[in-house]
Amino acid sequence: MKMFRFIAAGLAAALSLTAIGSTAYAAGGGTKPPSHEWHHAGPFGTYDRHAIQRGFQVYQEICASCHALGQMSFRNLGQRGGPFEDGNFPNPNDNPIVMQIAASYQIMDGPNDDGDMFERAGIPADTYPSPFENEQQARASNGGAYPPDLSLIVRARGYGEDYIYGLLTGYHDAPEGYDLAPGQYYNDYFPGNAIAMAPPIMDDMITYADGTEATMEQMAEDVTVFLTWVGDPHMEARKQTGWMVLIYLFIFTIIVYLAYRQIWANVKH
């Protein structure tokens, strides 16, 4: 059947596209981290809401002392698909948990009518405050290394969430003969292996609000899920819309195919 040959050709083209795309994609260097099973993977995957909440706590209490999250506003925490989404508050700016989190930060605002800058409590519309004023200050406080903004860190790395999880759990003593400069640590998955970030998380560093045991692996996994959500906050809506679009197109295609068969039924071609 011509139609099946056509569809087969289409699929072959799509597959080779993906193959070429992923070869270009993976050309980032570094060891391939082991692949992890993520709740949000696959065409039906959704974020594990509890994991994002715990991950936000890990970020807040550990990562946020060095890493900014410049693309995220407090209101995002309460939006559809976010960790503190609440059906009673469709407008996340009204969400009490979000308001409370925002208010716990002091935000520099101004200038006021006297021309002075001033500090005030945060509101949901504020972006998450950065730990440093600028890159120079961040480098000065971190031995010359610049802790990157984590808003897009999962998307900006070749192996995505597997890389982040691998990096957080991949610290070891340097193998014999490997020279580490002072202030550097050996990591299995960081390109070149010498990373300036000290092992950031250890067992029981924080106490989870929901009582989950705070092992290193648990915290690494939770914060990775949180950062995946920050990088792709509309993933759930995207997949749901995708299924509706595909179902619609599929039915439409069948109808058009039947019309095609009928119109061409008595035509030699």
Partner: peptide, 20 residues
């Protein structure tokens, strides 16, 4: 048919053809 393949990428693999 072509749009269906397109939509698989748009909705399920939006960044696979780009570079990290």
């Amino acid at each position: 048919v072509y749009l269906m393949v397109f939509c698989v990428f748009v909705f399920f693999l939006p960044n696979v053809l780009g570079h990290a």
